[in-house]
């Protein structure tokens, strides 16, 4: 895609040299050289990536290759074997994948992840949008502080979050104490030990973690929406809801897409919070694919199968992200 100059106010004149040479040749056929001089032959339109660009990305690419791509390929390779992680491998072809497809435990773990997506992704985006809409109408004092404070959970290690929330959800913890205090004592339960409520409880932790990210994205995004649009909407008689649907939401389209993709990937990958709160229990109600992969690799000594589970999970995340990006880009003004 050519990068275009912004118009007469640009101080630099961008010259497309090959196009220029072409125009000269067309206008003066007798002057046109049969072959363009070297300088013009190798010239490219400004902004078109040149080979030297590879040198700039090389360091980053090396790291990416070593620490992301190579292990990915290696994992797919291991998934073709039956291996306990310590002794010799035996080739098994696609047997691990056949087992995985028939594995009910794996299927349910994906279902649990799907439920977590509601909490990690949908809920924070919705709440984030609502709050952003409210904040853009009225200036809130101390807003910078809130923006920082709400983003902090993103910076805390997963293990720490899991431990702190285990205490909050404890039978004698602050959540139950608060429920008792306001008279909702009948709602008190062992949240992380309850068959129905363990997964939503973990979802709640996820909402708390990712909500700040969404807020920051949306608030930053709203600032690039020109205020003239809001003025125009108000002149046309739009109330707060109409304003939101007609101006804010379309303007935040890109940010909402990014928020969805990031938080969904986060939800599907989440391991540390689940492992450190319920370890997949009770009775497997909070088992997610990443935890199942861990159990197979390090507890059941079935590393080949774990690699297959990991590959399937990676493929699922990739497909989901691709669908979201493709769906989000449709209708994007070009």
């Amino acid at each position: 895609m050519l990068y275009r100059a912004t118009g007469p106010s640009s101080t630099r004149r961008c010259i497309d040299l090959t196009a220029h040479a072409g125009r000269v040749a067309a206008a003066h056929p007798e002057r046109a050289p049969r072959r363009l001089p070297r300088r013009l032959r190798n010239a490219r339109a400004p902004g078109v990536p040149r080979n030297i660009g590879w040198l700039y990305v090389l360091p980053g690419l090396v790291f990416y290759g070593l620490f992301t791509l190579a292990p990915l390929v290696h994992t797919v390779y291991i998934s073709l074997f039956s291996w306990d992680g310590l002794t010799a491998k035996t080739y098994a072809g696609l047997a691990n994948y056949r087992t995985a497809i028939a594995d009910h435990v794996l299927l349910w773990s994906f279902v649990h992840s799907g439920i977590l997506i509601l909490f990690y992704s949908v809920l924070p985006v919705v709440v984030g949008l609502a709050l952003t809409a409210a904040l853009t109408r009225h200036a809130v004092r101390g807003f910078r502080f809130f923006r920082t404070a709400l983003f902090l959970p993103q910076l805390i290690a997963g293990v720490v979050i899991a431990q702190a929330w285990s205490w909050i959800y404890d039978d004698n913890g602050p959540l139950n104490a608060a429920l008792r205090f306001i008279g909702l004592g009948s709602f008190v339960r062992p949240w992380l030990g309850d068959f129905t409520w363990a997964l939503p409880s973990i979802g709640g932790i996820g909402t708390w973690v990712t909500f700040g990210l969404c807020m920051v994205l949306f608030v930053a995004g709203v600032q690039k929406i020109p205020s003239t649009l809001y003025d125009a909407a108000r002149v046309d008689g739009a109330g707060p809801f109409r304003e939101f649907y007609a101006v804010t939401l379309p303007g935040l389209r890109g940010e909402v897409l990014v928020a969805f993709v990031l938080t969904t990937i986060n939800a599907l990958r989440s391991f540390d919070i689940v492992y450190n709160t319920t370890a997949g229990g009770p009775g497997g109600q909070t088992l997610v694919p990443s935890l199942y992969m861990y159990q197979n690799a390090f507890l059941y000594n079935k590393v080949g199968y774990a690699a297959a589970v990991a590959t399937i999970l990676a493929a699922a995340i990739f497909v989901l992200a691709a669908i979201m990006l493709r769906f989000g880009d449709r209708g994007e003004p070009s």
């Binding site: 959800y169 404890d170 039978d171 339960r189 062992p190 949240w191 992380l192 309850d194 319920t278």
Partner: peptide, 8 residues
């Protein structure tokens, strides 16, 4: 049993 046995 205590009702929070799975969480403690």
């Amino acid at each position: 049993f205590n009702d929070d046995y799975n969480a403690v």
